[in-house]
Design a binder for these strands. Structure first.
Lengths: 383, 383
DNA sequence: CCCACTTTCGCAACGCTGTTGCCAAAGTGC
DNA sequence: GCACTTTGGCAACAGCGTTGCGAAAGTGGG
């Protein structure tokens, strides 16, 4: 590691604390305490940030007997990122500011099966339009794209978008980057959702958690040590096809007794409590294996009966924890990141409103996709 | 991060490369390439290491037309660590040098249920004796202790040593540290085994893997991103009680359908192939969830029929990978770290020989325990 | 054998990092 | 109004890796 890397590391540390502090801001001395750096170093770093327009002074605190502390805050408009969520039948694009707040949102129907060229054309159109609305062109850091199915996050190549084999092997990242002349990052939708939750306020005091999605299928995203765990081949988080019943009923994937198959079957016959119990068993396995701090549930099937799922999963975890003599890991519904919505509703709200998203149980996948570009600024690059 | 942290980071990087290179050594320029630092920086760092006696010149390579490269190597005797493995009925203690090579080994029967004070007394005796044999007293970095059952790695407090509730809550680390006047680290036995494998040659090109142990019970240790993943409460790696059969036969832990219960039952009725298949199913879940690079199997039940287990587990993984259209993760038997045994067999070989260990399927837990002290030197601290 | 050439590696000067010492600024409280 | 406390910037500093340059130690052609 070189000297310059140290500088950007510490700058990222400070930026992350500024982001976490939100609009109320944070004082220099508190930054010093939290980072372990001296107040002088913080002064230098924040002076650079203020020169670049990334930070600004925001009033002062009450005095405690001496000169009152000056409060610093992140300037949200100093940078933007576009996030695109490609779902099977829909495209959602958002423009986020530095804090992750949504400045503009657009949603349109899309047939993912219409072929790579059509999809690219649509993404280029939507992302380009949003990026153009971000003021200065240089202020857009890049475009994050989240879509279902296994893919290679590092190379940005699609592998097996579930149900759309014609997209296999398509180098989405490079094609989009060339067309948009912007940095592009692609990732699985569940990873993007998990990343969005990781930088959201909901997981503030938590360093590792699992986000489990139950919508049309069952999937998951893992955050370990503050960063999304993608594994060697970006294949981590395949939660839906965890086998919890040896030689159980066959699943579409070819295995038998997968969580997804069992849960879908239970829901189909109206037994939501049983679906929650099965899900809870798989979640219990995950918690035992990884010892995460928190479990977040999402997806529209969960959203249809949130209490049932939270209670059912928590019951399994509590029972296991009770026998093991420890405390159970908390289970919550992922709130979808609302409440941090930035201003500018009238500016670009072409498509649906935020409320509708929660109704579908899509917990800010597009916002999480934008975080693929924003998170590295705050030292949240993956391991 | 301060400036001094940068220095120790880069020093650790260099030390790790020196360790990996083994007795053949590595040249300064190669160190520069592998670390990304300039040759000058490497010269400075290695000069410090040579002053401290940690590194030494070890001949030179053939010339390629100019001055031949000087080869540097780690000086194994520059530091030692004691590793202690507390098993249910046996205590194994080793003295390891900087490279992890075993300098002395001692094994004696021990009743873990004899109470905390007795156990402490025995560990103090064995570890103290080995530490005294390491030449200069200051050359011993500390003592690592590995034992079964959940515990708090950070505080060094035992939680629920399986089968020995009288040890619950005992602050083993602090008590031992005071008695030995040495730094002490405690960890789960499976974590120690995984750490030992992580620094061994077997996983050289691999950044994340799972070690799964099938002995008297089933357990596991995870290495993600080169460091042992312990989770928030050091509870990660609980592999034995992954449920793979909903409402299956009851397990001692109180759950139903645990891997351990199913595998033990299969072995008891002589159906080792079925045990391997069940284990493979759970391993398949783990691989899907974490996308590790490698699966290593160990433990004396595996050692009794290694081919059957490797083939059985690999078959499940291959079948899943085939349907998913990817390559299967390789499965191997953990070799137990033999072959890196340092010299000095006659010096301290009071107890059993190394070969016996492999026969029991205990893959260097004591050596891994010693690595709890050694690994941080090489930048392998956990996240 | 000698000399040109290549490659390695250390010394010295440098730019940049965070740190330390000191002082001005800006409050509180008697 | 003055002593005191606390904040935060300026200047000098030690230490990091980098750059420039030259000595050391080989190879290979004449």
């Amino acid at each position: 590691m070189q000297l310059g890397a140290l500088r950007s590391h510490n700058t990222a540390l400070v930026l992350d604390l500024l982001r976490t502090a939100g609009p109320e801001g944070i004082s220099r001395l508190e930054l010093a305490e939290r980072t372990g750096l001296t107040p002088q170093a913080i002064s230098k770093i924040t002076a650079r940030l203020r020169e670049n327009g990334l930070a600004a002074e925001a009033g002062r605190r009450a005095s405690t007997g001496g000169k009152p502390r000056t409060v610093l805050r992140l300037v949200p408009e100093a940078g933007h990122a576009v996030g695109v969520h490609l779902d099977r039948d829909e495209l959602t694009a958002v423009l986020c500011d530095l804090t992750g707040g949504v400045v503009a949102r657009h949603r349109t129907p899309l047939d993912l099966g219409a072929g790579a060229e059509t999809v690219v054309e649509r993404v280029v159109g939507e992302a380009g339009e949003l990026a153009a609305g971000a003021g200065r062109p240089g202020a857009v850091l890049g475009v994050g794209v989240a879509l279902p199915g296994p893919l290679d996050h590092r190379r940005g190549v699609l592998h097996r978008v579930t149900g759309f084999p014609e997209l296999n092997g398509f180098p989405l990242r490079d094609v989009l980057a060339r067309r948009l002349s912007l940095p592009v990052v692609v990732d699985k939708d569940t990873n993007a959702a998990a990343l969005g939750l990781a930088v959201g306020g909901e997981t503030a005091s938590v360093t590792s958690f699992a986000y489990l999605h139950f919508g049309a299928g069952v999937g998951g995203g893992l955050v370990l040590g503050g960063a999304v765990h993608r594994g060697a081949r970006t294949g981590a988080g395949e939660f839906g096809h965890q086998v919890v019943q040896l030689d159980g009923p066959p699943c579409e994937c070819g295995n038998r007794g997968c969580v997804e198959a069992l849960c879908l079957a239970a829901v189909a016959r109206g037994d939501v409590a049983e679906a929650a119990r099965v899900l809870g068993t798989a979640v219990g396995n995950l918690v035992a294996l990884l010892d995460v701090d928190l479990v977040l549930l999402g997806g529209r099937t969960v959203a249809a009966a949130p209490e049932t799922f939270v209670r059912g999963v928590a019951a399994v975890l509590h029972e296991r924890a009770r026998r093991a003599g420890g405390d159970a890991v908390p289970v919550r519904v992922a709130s979808g990141g609302e409440g941090r919505e930035g201003g500018g509703d009238g500016e670009g709200g072409v498509g649906g409103a935020g409320g509708e998203r929660a109704g579908r149980g899509e917990h800010g996948v597009a916002e999480g996709a934008a975080q693929l570009l924003l998170a590295p600024l705050f030292g949240r690059a993956d391991g």
